[in-house]
């Protein structure tokens, strides 16, 4: 976006910090730290929305920033903590892939995303940089989902992906129309609630939330 000249340094800093917060999730074995890192990531996203809103003069983005702050940085982490407390899940997260391989994979995914986005000629400058960060978040979110055993981490993975897309939408197009953004927020919130209900059900029927126990349906 050529218009975003003013905030471009701040933007770069924020986006870099968002990537750091993502690696905090990858590098942590404790559920609480993962949730906290997610909260930080969402807070930084809200800042991105605010900065873009300030530099483009689009007031819609302030509303979006506020909603992000409220929902993703406060309500959703709270729901996570509530679930963790209620079902007394073991605080350590079970992994299919260890911490160091996870971090290395994360690094590789960032590099791949960067080169992938650079190869699209129609997207240039800061949006290219932000979009590669957004792609990284999407792919790391996906990686978190498949490399962690706990159902709750799969839920977190989806939210990381969603955050990545949010970053993409803001950096590419200064945010989608307000109506659409609010609809997406609504879906994310309801989705988190329903996934929460499902996690409780899984815990009740299987007496664990390790998803490797969920393999009765095949063929």
């Amino acid at each position: 976006m050529e218009e975003v000249i003013f905030g471009s340094n701040i933007m770069q800093l924020l986006i870099a910090l968002i990537l750091v917060s993502t690696f905090m999730i990858l590098g942590s074995t404790r559920l609480y730290s993962c949730v906290r890192a997610f909260g930080i990531q969402s807070f930084l996203l809200a800042c991105v929305a605010g900065v873009v809103g300030f530099s483009t003069g689009k007031y819609d983005l302030y509303i979006i920033a506020l909603l992000t702050l409220l929902l993703k940085a406060a309500v959703i982490p709270y729901i996570f903590i509530y679930i963790i407390r209620e079902i007394k899940v073991k605080r350590e997260i079970a992994l299919y892939v260890g911490i160091s391989p996870s971090l290395i994979t994360g690094g590789i995914l960032v590099v791949i995303s960067y080169y992938l986005i650079r190869s699209i000629n129609a997207i240039t400058g800061l949006s290219s940089f932000a979009l590669s960060a957004s792609m990284s978040l999407v792919s790391i979110g996906l990686f978190v989902m498949i490399s962690r055993k706990k159902a709750i981490m799969q839920m977190l993975g989806i939210l990381i992906m969603e955050n990545g897309l949010f970053l993409g939408a803001i950096s590419l197009t200064n945010g989608m129309p307000l109506l659409v953004e609010i609809g997406v927020f609504f879906d994310v919130l309801i989705g988190v609630l329903i996934m929460g209900i499902l996690i409780f059900r899984i815990n009740k029927t299987f007496e664990t939330i390790d998803t490797d126990k969920l393999k009765t349906l095949i063929g």
Partner: peptide
């Protein structure tokens, strides 16, 4: 809320939400 229906719902929810992302 049988075992298999909870499993199916979880898979459905996760796979479709990722897809839809």
């Amino acid at each position: 809320s049988t075992k298999s229906s909870v499993e199916a719902a979880w898979k459905y929810m996760i796979i479709c939400t990722v897809g839809i992302t």
